[in-house]
Design a protein around this nucleic acid. Structure first.
Lengths: 241, 241
DNA sequence: CGGTCACTTGACGTGACTCAAGAGTAGTGG
DNA sequence: CCACTACTCTTGAGTCACGTCAAGTGACCG
């Protein structure tokens, strides 16, 4: 698709998620009454009335929606420092499920709106987050609409690495199942497994166990993910090796 | 993907775009200095510095991003009453191109921020729009990640119909090319054409010319789009007829 | 009337899904 | 410590939906 008359982006614009550990003006407001959820518990369901805005203090939350025929699209794996249910209408438009054990702070809708109105420190922070969410949604659309299975998987691994500390060459945990990854990337769990296997066999990643990995060749991984121009012409090549 | 332990949505939640013709508190603020663009002109490019927020007064704008290997993902076809460049950081994260001739109002960043701060009528309107944009992005992710080609095409037609007036059974123009539709749905233009042909042959839509259509069987179209539970079990059936 | 352009249609190839079997890994109980 | 179970993950073989390539059709325009 697309033809030559469309104009290319000025930069590759990696737009990684901001550092989630600096919780800025938020933590103090939200930490009034922290709540705990066990892994697999639901924080809320699509359609539920929305009591307030959530700030994740620890753990990871799966934000997803379901189709009528029972397919799940994971919108986001939200980690510490991220906001949930930042909608201003009455009801939740997604479901949220704890992937790991999770702690959240809740800011009731009224207090949230009030803070938006009064606090000149709070408002820009919220808008910054909204920006990030919109941008993340756009990148997700690009991923789902434009990329192939290997590209998607590579992108996912790079995002995972970037979500963790700046741990160069260290092992990074994969907290979610293959099924979760598949529902996030719009693939099947078998395909995800195959693509991981391919990256492993090509010596681009280390995958000693199913639930953690290490990037051995960041450059090639980025190329495969479509984040750098590809000089080696080895992007979509088959497995044979 | 997905298995039985995930919980289904409470409602089908069609969440159609709001009526764009009621421009609420926005029109007066934005209409100070209206600008005109010819079809195919660019309003701005990804990476450009962002002078202000755009309100579309008339026409349709293609909001898109490009991958490094030259693929285009159309994020949105934005019509009259919709906001563009509602980002709070310095640079545009998408490109915007006029599909038809377009008139827009621009509100400079400073004035926008000020209005947000001071006007209690303006702020909720903006948040409402942000909600809509986030929700649209989520639905787009579902479309791209979960749906097949026929499902996507049907969904697109229903969205188009809903974007126009509440014209029951009337012909609806298709202002964009097959290529645009394809880049929006994550398909090829050939596949889009084939799916439209299939819907036409099955007597679900009328397609007398390439650039307008009419829905003949809304119920079946909605079923195919995955918006209603399917009793006929004819959703994914092949073309043969 | 001939040229250009977008759309349509067909034949073919292939990437990802489906179905099904096997391999780890963790947890439980004797 | 070693079965035995119950997972999830991996791997393979076959199928199908969608993409690719290419030819054909129709509308618009000079």
């Amino acid at each position: 698709m697309s033809d030559t008359r469309y104009i290319c982006p000025h930069s590759s614009r990696p737009t990684w998620r901001r550092d989630r550990r600096k919780n800025d003006a938020l933590a103090d407001l939200f930490s009034r009454r922290p709540l705990h959820y066990r892994a697999r518990e639901h924080l809320f369901l699509e359609g539920d009335s929305c009591e307030g805005v959530f700030l994740i203090l620890s753990g990871t939350v799966i934000v997803y929606t379901m189709t009528l025929n029972g397919q799940r699209q994971i919108q986001n794996f939200a980690g510490a420092g991220e906001l949930l249910a930042l909608n201003f209408s009455g009801n939740h438009t997604t479901s949220a499920q704890a992937l790991t054990d999770v702690t959240v702070g809740i800011l009731p809708r009224l207090a949230f709106n009030q803070a938006l109105q009064t606090s000149d420190r709070f408002r820009p922070t919220i808008f910054e987050r909204i920006d990030e969410m919109l941008d993340a949604a756009r990148r997700q659309a690009m991923l789902l609409g434009c990329k192939g299975a290997l590209e998607k998987t590579a992108t996912f691994l790079l995002d995972l690495e970037n979500g963790g500390e700046g741990s160069q060459g260290q092992f990074i945990p994969i907290p979610m199942s293959r099924c979760d990854i598949a529902d996030f990337l719009g693939l099947t769990l078998e395909t995800v497994s195959r693509m991981l296997g391919r990256l492993k066999r090509q010596d681009i990643i280390d995958l000693p166990r199913a639930d953690c990995f290490r990037i051995k060749d960041p450059k090639r991984l980025a190329q495969i993910a479509g984040l750098e121009t590809d000089f080696g012409h080895m992007c979509g090549n088959p497995d044979r090796f």
